[in-house]
Design a protein around this nucleic acid. Structure first.
Length: 852
DNA sequence: CACCTGCATGGATCT
DNA sequence: GATCCATGCAGGTGC
């Protein structure tokens, strides 16, 4: 750059490192701008516009140079200019900044800005800018956008409106910030981060705030109506200082503003062409009756800021010479994507970008999708709380055609010229998408960005037409998924059923990580000879470990070092904190192998590890596939199964996985409330203790016993009936179970379904889940029912086998004991001494065996 | 009985 | 506190 000097006569800084590329209003092109005041340096090198060169790279229309603007993150960010060509998005948009920027801003506004330390010059371009000072080519467009009915006063209408509205409410402020998210979606994280760093680390949103603050200026009247696509016009202000202000504010604004969103309702202009007039009513939005909205408040919430990339724009327009004006976007709710076919439009967006309607019936609106297909929707509203609720009706075919579902995003844009509304979409990057605007539309781009469109650039550069097909290629066509809500509190947290299942599994897995709170001593309860530890504080998460079982029967626990990723053997009883490294391996510190150090070799072979993981993965997959039918019991179900099956449970699990020391009958990974407890200490409650824990345990135990007794007697009666092949008698016991059903009722669960039909549905929903908040009185029912349902398959199979063979196959060493105990305890309604509960099928088997 | 329509409700969010 | 908006629901309509 050498010895250039700032053109701002007040600044006159010379160039050193304090310059940047940007749009120079004075020169009408890209320029080297003073970082001090933002004015252009003399000796400018102009590159007015860029177009797609033969090489696929952007070339300056004038000089043929490849576009490589010096501004941040501009290299790959271009936008199509209204008159054709491509402009640096980061630089060209500052033209909009110029037009949007208030002409008079206190210097205080920028004191915190990284570039505002020297900003001292209030500029004095009043809102009543003489239109003759504007570029001739631009003025007609401005006039079009402004009040047509007042051709002699192109800014009057808008000004009046703003004046009125500003007097009414601050909400009338029109915020040209919709571009932020748009731009940010184009930026990589690093660029964004750097931008914010440059601006103000302590106030990452300062720029936004400034924009909010500064946009409440009368001088915005004109600028806000600046039509899109005019950014590259040769707009020049008489005062060269204007541009200085523009670029001086922050690089954030300079680089990130965009013209993409119009936050002011635009009048349909002649420039939109006849098509526009056909589709849109001739009424001017500006002239919309106040009763339609709230005094013209059209400020869009960030969640509706369009985040359309230039690639999308290209895709939507399909024509480099047509400008796409992203209007807004919306994440589809379940209602929107549902069969009802009503897409709720954000009020501000509807009033800003859709034709005004005064009748509730609304108007038919034709919207083109990205495939070029035209859809007709009914744009209407409902009165709602002294306001309106705008909807697009009849969107179901379109939604289905686009294969959209709740969580996906639809974008509304307008093609200029023509004014045709275009409806694009963006599939959710993952299946879970909340409507939390803060998360999905973070200005730092951390939200779900337009990843569905990644790769479109490649198509562009390859000369390929980026069509909807390309979108679909990148977004696997997902099957119609039923959306479910997680949590009863927030129904807006939508997720698909599959994801809910995944979450459930993840939840189960998370149970494995639960550790008792380290700071509190548990209260020991003894239920059926099993010790339970009750904690007053919630559990904490610990590090996940895997359990293995050697052929010799030895069980081992393994944990992976967070530092070296090597697996270390641990004692079975060890519970690790969330972070664990070899150095924490105090149990192996005395070993000559020094496995308390990351330098020590791994003790377990990779193949063994793979085997362990395969088993684990397969187990997980099985759980997902089997869902609630044939899956292994977990959580309270596991506890129930254990209670019913006793030792046999260990034989139903994977052979490689041994038992934990936390609970002798449970497998590693068991997430039941018993297994997440550490080896218990001592200290039982007094028999007379009436604390909540004891009362709960007592109540649980009583209910358990009552139900056992009842079911046992029912089972015996039914088995007797089945044996005699007598149709079931009417009565409440069988609750209308058919004879065929009774023949099949060799399982406890089936019987349970009949006796507790309606209840089973509810329980089924919670099967496999550990709900620590469930009602105790319901919990014990779930225990029985869940256990019966889960073990049904295996037990039905077992029922076909002779008892001794069943025992042999399953290694039920204690079954004899169980049966023996139940033989006596069952008649007395007592719990067997050994805590082993006879499974229903075992009894059936017993009977069958007797019959045999 | 299923579906549609219009409105009401209440949680979420904004001012 | 105001407002938005997702969604539920009652009443209407048609099969």
């Amino acid at each position: 750059m050498g010895s250039m000097i700032c053109m701002n006569e007040v600044c006159r800084k010379t160039t050193s490192s304090e310059w940047k590329k940007g749009w120079s209003l004075k020169s009408g092109g890209f320029a080297n701008l003073c970082y001090n005041c933002g004015s252009a340096f003399e000796n400018l090198s102009f590159c007015e516009t860029f177009h797609m060169g033969d090489s696929g790279w952007r070339e300056c229309k004038m000089c043929g140079k490849h576009l490589h603007c010096g501004c941040i993150a501009s290299k790959y960010l271009f936008e199509y200019l209204d008159f054709g060509g491509v402009g640096c998005i980061s630089c060209a948009r500052c033209l909009d900044d110029h037009s949007m920027r208030p002409m008079q801003v206190p210097a205080d506004d920028f004191r915190d800005s990284a570039f505002g330390t020297n900003f001292i010059q209030p500029l004095h371009v009043e809102k009543g800018v003489d239109k003759t000072n504007f570029d001739k080519g631009r003025l007609p467009i401005v006039n079009n956008i402004m009040e047509i009915s007042e051709p002699g006063q192109p800014f009057q209408s808008q000004k009046d409106e703003n004046n009125v509205s500003l007097g009414k409410t601050k909400q009338e402020k029109v915020l040209p910030v919709g571009d932020v998210s748009t731009c940010f979606s184009n930026l990589n994280q690093q660029s964004i981060a750097s931008l914010f760093r440059e601006q103000d680390n302590s106030k990452p949103n300062q720029g936004v705030k400034e924009m909010y603050d500064t946009t409440n200026q009368p001088s915005l009247d004109f600028s806000l109506s600046t039509p899109v696509g005019c950014s590259s016009s040769g707009l020049s202000f008489p005062d060269g200082g204007v541009e200085g202000r523009e670029h001086e504010k922050t690089p954030f604004q300079q680089g990130l503003r965009t013209r993409h969103i119009l936050l002011k309702p635009l009048k349909p202009s002649p420039s939109f062409g006849s098509d526009s007039n056909k589709e849109l009513p001739s009424q001017t939005r500006i002239a919309r009756p106040p009763a339609e909205g709230r005094g013209g408040r059209n400020q869009l919430l960030p969640r509706y800021w369009p985040r359309i990339t230039d690639q999308e724009l290209c895709q939507l327009s399909g024509d480099l010479n047509s400008a796409i004006v992203p209007l807004f976007e919306k994440v589809l709710s379940a209602s929107d994507a549902g069969r009802i076919g009503r897409l709720v439009l954000p009020k501000a967006c509807a009033e800003a970008y859709f034709p005004p309607i005064n009748q509730s019936d609304g108007l038919p609106i034709r919207i083109q999708d990205i495939k070029g297909k035209e859809w007709t929707f009914q744009f209407r509203f409902w009165p709602n709380n002294n306001s309106r609720m705008y909807v697009l009706e009849g969107v179901t075919p379109c939604i289905q055609n686009m294969q959209l579902q709740a969580g996906d995003t639809v974008t509304f844009s307008r093609i200029d010229p023509g004014g045709k509304l275009v409806m694009g979409f963006r599939k959710a990057t993952n299946s879970v998408e909340t409507q939390d605007p803060q998360s999905s539309h973070l200005p730092d781009g951390s939200g779900s960005a337009d990843t569905s469109f990644t790769g479109l650039t490649e198509n562009l550069n390859n000369g390929g037409r980026t069509s909807a097909d390309s979108v679909h290629r990148q977004v696997p066509v997902s099957e119609k998924k039923k959306t479910t809500n997680i949590g009863s509190k927030n129904k807006r947290l939508l997720m698909h059923a599959d994801d809910a299942m995944e979450l459930r599994i993840t939840w189960e897995e998370s149970q494995e990580l639960l550790r008792p709170p380290p700071t509190t001593q548990p209260t020991i309860l003894v239920i059926e000879d099993c010790e339970f530890e009750a904690y007053d504080e919630p559990p904490v998460f610990g590090k996940q470990t895997i359990f293995t079982s050697r052929p010799s029967g030895d069980q081992e626990q393994w944990a992976q070092c967070d530092s070296c990723s090597k697996w270390r053997r641990l004692p079975m009883h060890v519970l690790l904190p969330p972070k664990w490294t070899c150095s924490d391996n105090i149990w192996d510190s005395n070993s000559f192998l020094y496995r308390c150090s990351c330098s020590a070799p791994e003790e377990i072979k990779a193949k063994e590890l793979e085997a362990f993981f395969r088993v684990s993965k397969g187990h997980k997959r099985q759980k997902i596939a089997g869902k609630n039918e044939d899956c292994e019991p977990s959580g309270l179900n596991a506890l129930a199964t254990v209670a019913v099956l006793g030792d046999s449970i260990s034989d139903l699990g994977e052979p490689l996985v041994g038992a934990t020391t936390k609970h002798p009958r449970h497998r590693p990974g068991c997430t039941c409330i018993v297994c997440i407890q550490p080896p218990s200490g001592k200290g039982k409650h007094q028999p007379t203790c009436k604390c909540n824990a004891c009362l709960s345990a007592e109540r649980r135990f009583k209910t358990l016993m009552l139900r056992k007794k009842k079911k046992q007697s029912e089972r015996e009666a039914e088995v007797a009936q089945a044996k005699d092949q007598v149709p079931p008698k009417d009565g409440s016991e069988t609750d209308g179970a058919s004879g065929a059903e009774l023949m099949m009722q060799t399982s406890h669960s089936e019987n349970e379904r009949n006796t507790n039909g309606d209840h089973m549905e509810k329980v089924g929903a919670g099967k496999g889940q550990l709900d620590l908040n469930c009602h105790p009185n319901r919990e014990d029912e779930m225990l029985i029912e869940a256990a019966a349902g889960i073990s049904m398959t295996s037990l039905i199979n077992a029922a076909d086998l002779p008892l001794d063979m069943y025992q042999t196959q399953n290694g039920l060493a204690t079954l004899d004991k169980c049966l023996l105990s139940l033989a006596t305890a069952g008649s007395e309604g007592q719990q067997p001494d050994n805590g082993c509960v006879r499974p229903a099928d075992a009894q059936v088997q017993e009977n069958n065996g007797d019959n045999g």
